[in-house]
Nucleic acid binder design. Structure first.
Lengths: 243, 243
DNA sequence: TCTAATAGCGTACACTCGACGCAATTACCG
DNA sequence: CGGTAATTGCGTCGAGTGTACGCTATTAGA
């Protein structure tokens, strides 16, 4: 129920493995995490239930608690595992590297539609998430930005990524079918269109912009739009600092 | 459990009030929403339970379902009510107006630490949320941006606001005490500092940036940093379009 | 071989949201 | 001024959820 930062740290940053005495575990933490990620990818994070997970693994429910302190810790482990190892830095200059970094993170969020609602707010970072951050900060290493500015810049980028990822996949839904990603976005757009035609007098600008955008824009364009705007803004600051 | 777009629309955009025949309701939907917002502000969104709400109102639990189809609809109504009526457009030029718009939305997110996790993803917009969007689009009305670009620009801004709001208040926590906002952020920072000193060899850039930032940066600075970067980036595009 | 530590996991318990249906109340209409 | 019909109040119940606790079986180390 409650947040347990110390337990989360202990789980995400495991200490030395001690020699065991008792019987051999018939399951592994990695196994649980992997199937949990599969379930979450297919049916949403709310479908990741200790009961379902145990059924999937062919064990009784309570046996899972030998490997994990609780569900919160499982989710944290899922997030860091789903993020995966950070990519190698690639690209020309800070801008190219940062852009590549974001474009490499994007498919990760698309592959795990629940990831954006978990990598948010004050939390305990896992090794992989810290690794991604390290790579992003590496892109800004040659600039004259201060430490706080670099962190803020990376936070701005990740915030945009998460925001766009949220647009793709619904929030706390428990979708049963896998074809929900496009459906939900299209369904939401249709509903919005209906709403705006019904109340076009109260929201004329929104109705006009939406009507025009519906023929041209997609979410991928929104991603690139925000990305380029952020990079432009960062570029202006970096140039100002250097000059 | 499931998402019900049509029900949400019916609740958020109520039709004409029909004349009633039966006994007079002893509660009102507005009353429920208000106390639900109070509970959420004080103890987090997860504390908003039908049971607790009913206790707070001095009624049995099931009586609430006469006023609301279910919890999802309640949360949607809470969100639109907490957002409140949009502010009047104020400021010089598109930049001043957009900046004011964001700075007026910010305290709303701070006052309702759960709002950021609800105004996310494909969803049914309420009247107030659409009103806010209309005002933001009004700021860009004099520019040469296309409809899609204007929507993307507003989405970029709101994404940043939500991201910063999430940084302040924890995610799905159920904080008991009210002094959690500063505590959690400080606690998280301390934990991050500990983590980075423990593994400074693996994440040297992050450790350096964080150590430098911890003495200077706050979350309010991060908000303004991202805001100014976004506005700079939008300005570059707008100037390019005009020239 | 004996012992001590560990894994497996059955049985609770305290919660959650919500479906259903009956009884009481009140407004409308003849 | 009735009688009818619709609406509210809400008790009961079921299907979920996470997890504390403690007993038994197993196995590595002394």
């Amino acid at each position: 129920m409650e947040a347990k930062p110390d337990t989360l740290t202990a789980v995400l940053w495991p200490a030395e493995p001690v020699r065991k005495r008792g019987p051999k575990p018939s399951l592994s933490r990695q196994q649980i995490i992997e199937t949990a990620i599969e379930v979450a990818d297919a049916s949403g994070l709310s479908a990741v239930t200790m009961q379902l997970l145990a059924d999937q693994l062919g064990r009784p429910k309570m046996s899972l608690y030998r490997y994990l302190p609780g569900r919160d810790e499982l989710v944290a482990l899922m997030a860091d595992a789903a993020l995966g190892a950070p990519p190698a830095a690639a690209g020309r200059g800070w801008r190219g590297r940062l852009r590549n970094w974001a474009l490499q993170a994007w498919p990760v969020f698309l592959a795990h539609p629940w990831l954006h609602q978990v990598t948010v707010g004050p939390r305990v970072f896992g090794p992989n998430e810290l690794g991604w951050m390290e790579v992003a900060l590496g892109a800004l290493d040659a600039t004259d930005l201060t430490g706080a500015e670099r962190l803020d810049a990376v936070a701005l980028l990740t915030g945009h990524l998460r925001s766009m990822a949220a647009q793709r996949s619904a929030g706390p839904r428990s979708a049963t079918d896998a074809s929900a990603s496009d459906d939900i976005e299209a369904q939401s757009a249709a509903l919005m269109a209906q709403l705006l035609t019904d109340h076009a007098d109260r929201f004329p600008l929104t109705a006009a912009a939406f009507g025009q955008a519906q023929r041209t824009g997609t979410t991928d364009q929104a991603l690139e739009f925000g990305l380029d705007r952020i990079l432009d803004g960062l570029g202006a600051l970096i140039d100002r600092r250097r000059g």
